[in-house]
Design a protein around this nucleic acid. Structure first.
Lengths: 154, 154
DNA sequence: GGATATTGATCAGTATGCTGACTATCAGTA
DNA sequence: TACTGATAGTCAGCATACTGATCAATATCC
C-alpha cells in the first residue's frame, strides 16, 4: 500500500500545518495576535488602498465568503476600516488604519523569521527549489480551487 | 516589499488548498463523499485494526481533538466502529466495517488520480523532488506543531 | 427603457484545526 | 494503599475554508 509519505496531498497538509504553527508562535513571541490570513489581508490592503473585498480575495487567493469574516476581525481589532464605496454601492472599500500600519511594521521581523524557520530543514538552494516547484504546481492548478489567484490591477 | 510568491507559508497554503479541492472533486466524481482527513483516518484504521484514537492521531499527524469529530462522522456514515477497549477503559478501539472496506477499495483510483492531478504542472522528476523537499522540511519541523507525527508500533 | 444576467457582500450550514479545560482512568511511587 | 502525575477522550470556543443561497445593486442586451 502507498505510504502517506508518497502522497503529495498528505505532505502538503503537513507542511502547511507546520507553517501555520510556526507563524503563530513567532508572531505571539513578538507580542501580537494575528493569523496568517489576517496578516496577508492586512499587508495587501496596505499595498492597495481602497480595494474592495472581491479584489482582495483574488489577490491572495481566498474565497470571498472567508474574507468577510477575516475583515470582520481586522475591523474589530481596529486595524482596518470598511467603508461603503461611492462608485459601486454594493462594494466595500478597505483601508488600513494607523494602528494597522504600526502593527504591520512591528510584526514584519516575526513573519520573516517564521518563513526562515519553516524551511529550517533545507539549505538555501533546497529552499529556493522547493518554492520554485510549489509555484509551478500552484500555477498549473490555480483554476482547480474555488478561490484562484486573480492578478487584478487596482 | 516581499511578494506573496516568496513566502513559503503562502505557497504552502495555496498548494494545500488546491490539493484539497482536487481530492474532493475526484472523489465526488467517483460517487463518494469523503474528505481527505476522513480518507486518511479510514485507511489507517484498516491498516491497524483495533488502534485507539491517540495512536491514530499520531500516525497521521492530527490533533486528538480533531480526530474525535472525524471519527464521529465516519461512524455516522457506517464506515467505522468505535468500541470501548477492554484493556484500558479510557480508550476506544477503532475497527473498519465491511462497508468501510468496500468504500476504501472503490475510492482508491480517485485518490490516486487526485495525487497525479495536483502535481500536474510538474514532470515526474520535479514531482519526486518536490516530495523529497517537503518530506525533509516536514521532518525538521515535526515537533513544531501541536500534532506531530508519531511513529508508533501498534 | 425594461427584462435579464451578473456581481459584491453576506449568511446558514458543515468540516477541519487549534487552545485550553475537564473527567475518568491508569501507572508509578512513597 | 493512598497520593501524584500522566494519559484517553471529550467539550467549549474560536478561526479558517468550503457549498449553496439570498439580497441589493450594477451591466448588458433586446
Amino acid at each position: 500500500m502507498k505510504d502517506n509519505n508518497d502522497m503529495p496531498g498528505h505532505l502538503a497538509r503537513r507542511f502547511q500545518q507546520i507553517a501555520v504553527a510556526v507563524f503563530l508562535a513567532e508572531v505571539a513571541d513578538a507580542g501580537f495576535d494575528l493569523t496568517p490570513v489576517q496578516y496577508a489581508a492586512l499587508a495587501t490592503i496596505k499595498a492597495n488602498p481602497g480595494l474592495d473585498q472581491v479584489t482582495l480575495a483574488g489577490l491572495i487567493a481566498y474565497d470571498r465568503t472567508t474574507i468577510t469574516g477575516v475583515i470582520d476581525r481586522l475591523v474589530q481589532k481596529g486595524l482596518v476600516e470598511r467603508r461603503a464605496s461611492s462608485r459601486d454601492r454594493r462594494a466595500r472599500e478597505l483601508e488600513i488604519t494607523d494602528e494597522g500600519r504600526r502593527t504591520l511594521r512591528k510584526i514584519t521581523p516575526a513573519v520573516e523569521s517564521a518563513q526562515r524557520i519553516m524551511l529550517g530543514g533545507l539549505n538555501a538552494k533546497e529552499g529556493e527549489e522547493l518554492m520554485r516547484l510549489l509555484r509551478k504546481a500552484i500555477a498549473a492548478g490555480n483554476e482547480l480551487s474555488r478561490a484562484p489567484l486573480r492578478d487584478v490591477q487596482v
